[in-house]
Nucleic acid binder design. Sequence first.
DNA 1: CGGTAATTCGTTTTT
DNA 2: CGAATTACCG
Length: 728
Amino acid sequence: MLASSLLEGLNPEQRQACEITEGPLLVLAGAGSGKTRVLVHRIAYLIGVCGIPPESILAVTFTNKAAGEMRERVEKILGPEASSVFVSTFHSACVRILRRDVGHLGLSRGFAIYDEADSLGTVKEALRRQGLDPKLFEPRRLRWRIDQWKNAGVLPAQAADGAADLDTRRTAEVYAVYQRLLAEQNALDFGDLILQTTELFGRFPEVLSWYRRRWQYVLVDEYQDTNRVQYRLVKQLSDEHRNLCVVGDPNQSIYGWRGADVRNILDFARDHPDAQVVKLERNYRSTRPILDAASAVVANNRGPETTLWTEREDGGPIELYEAVDDRDEAQFVIRQVMTAVREEGRSFGEVAIFYRTNAQSRPFEEELLKYDVPYAVVGGVRFYERAEVKDALAYLRALVNPSDGMALRRILNNPPRGIGKTTLERADELAAAGGCTVLEALRSLAADPAAARVALKLQEFLALFDGLAAEIGGLTPAEALARVLERTGYLEHLARQGTPEAEARVENLRELLAGAEDFSAANAGADERSAIELFLDQVALVSDLDAYESRSDRVSLMTAHTAKGLEFPVVFLVGMEEGLLPHAAATRDAHGIEEERRLCYVGMTRAMERLTLTCASERRRYGARTFSVPSRFLSEIPRALVARGGARESAARDRTADGRRALDYSVGQSPAEEAGSIRVGLRVRHPIFGEGSITAVRGAGQAQKLEIRFDRVGVKTVLVRFANLEPV
DNA sequence: CGGTAATTCGTTTTT
DNA sequence: CGAATTACCG
């Protein structure tokens, strides 16, 4: 194939990123700079021009959606020959590797993949076994810390070695027990998928070298979001041939809380002294005002300035709406959406609403329902995490992997069959003492004549379980699920309840069955592993976003995190308030705030033509009314780029009677004016008390109060409305 | 043991 | 406010 035809339509930098095929390459790809395009064409170039066999290329992404898109687009250029390129998420790739070689680590190939809930359950079990009080040692916190260790590549022994304080030492002990429990249950959690793969490679060089030979060219997408273990994994795979191409944008690093380490991308050149660097700085997505506004925000982070430019000089200013409360905010947005559709010829599918937290979707959903506007909420509670769906899948899991204690626990008395808490506790104790699985413990309890009544119940359950295990052998996932739901009486039990909730659950199970049927059809006889096992893998690794169909004509609602990588002609970024964006939990340190700022940048740069930012001065939060002040990020946007709409009480707040500039949180156009936004730490002058700095902000609007520590007179609380404050 | 009522509880983002 | 755990009674 001719290089010229393959690289046609690429700009010089994009072209360069394709043509530098050997050795380490860092592609710094700004928002909307055609990153995916480059990855796709690079793969096509490697195969079509350089003659690299497709199967020796590995491309790693973070979402299945991204992987699927990449695979599709490469196939579109090269045809079916490209299908043997290994395009996969980090997690799927590791599952594939571990399914093959996990035996070296002492697990068996049918290992279960534990999600967060299973993992949390295992932490609780670990606490029980150590006799630690879950009130004192919060399971959620412990799980979090263990996860962070795993993201950092720290094993239990290393965690214990590095533990400086008592709490950390205890946590490391729990980590060790937790890990033992996982092994007993033949299970790995999400973090393990990556960590154990690097362990496998580290301890068994012959395994590693097999994969090194196989994948001669490695590409990594969204490199700014890789954590330390992923870094290690990539290094292991590429250290020999060194044909490593990483693509990313430090300004879009928004997963630090999940262990992502921006240093991976920032230090790439230092890590690989012979690395070449290509910068993609031309933005093809957004109009000038959108790009300028987003850049102005992220420019407040320290670190190297990045320049993005666009030729799209069209488009008006971005809009700001300051709502009274969250309902007003939602009403405004939905009216805008309807107007855009009716009067500007937009379609609903062109519109997206981004928020910081999933809980913010509710008022928007209510308004959308009210006006019959079609919409899709992406993310939130995963379909596969709904109780009834998890129950059904737990049956399959336990049948496939009888050591899977979390699955067994779920199904044992579900539907109710007279096996209660005490029986389960006894089984747990027996398992812990005898070093056997919970299922084996249940078997011995079933044979115990001392507890005849419960033994009978157990025998019934075990007969059912063993019968199903024998039956589902050659079945497709859909057939197996149907059999399970019927034979266990699960479906019947639900149907008998007759409540609307139960009906909804039955409906969800039907959807699960339909999904399983689709899967069966697409994966008939593909592998030596059973179709049921493959189905369970898929279920564990698929995300809500992966199934999201952006082409359908519906308004999309999602978090700014989920929005990364997507683009929409019309974007609403809502809830631009202190405490929300930036989120209160992230404002402890400068790092957290900078990450929030990047998140804001990510949200803004999704917009192609129209961007509207909104905030509300009052909103309902877990039932109670709370007040908030506009986000500091709003004040970082040059005023000239913004058109204001909305219900500001009056212009009186902007100017005081004698014409001096009053304290104003609104967008400023210069650093001096930006200083006018109300925030903790701001220096102000009071006509009577003199100069001081704000130490707290309470309330909003007419009732907004500030606590100020004045240099001369100490701490006072003042009403903004009357205080006549001036920024210093 | 099972189901319901009462209470507590915690709230960021997710492969 | 809603999920999730706990308390209590049949």
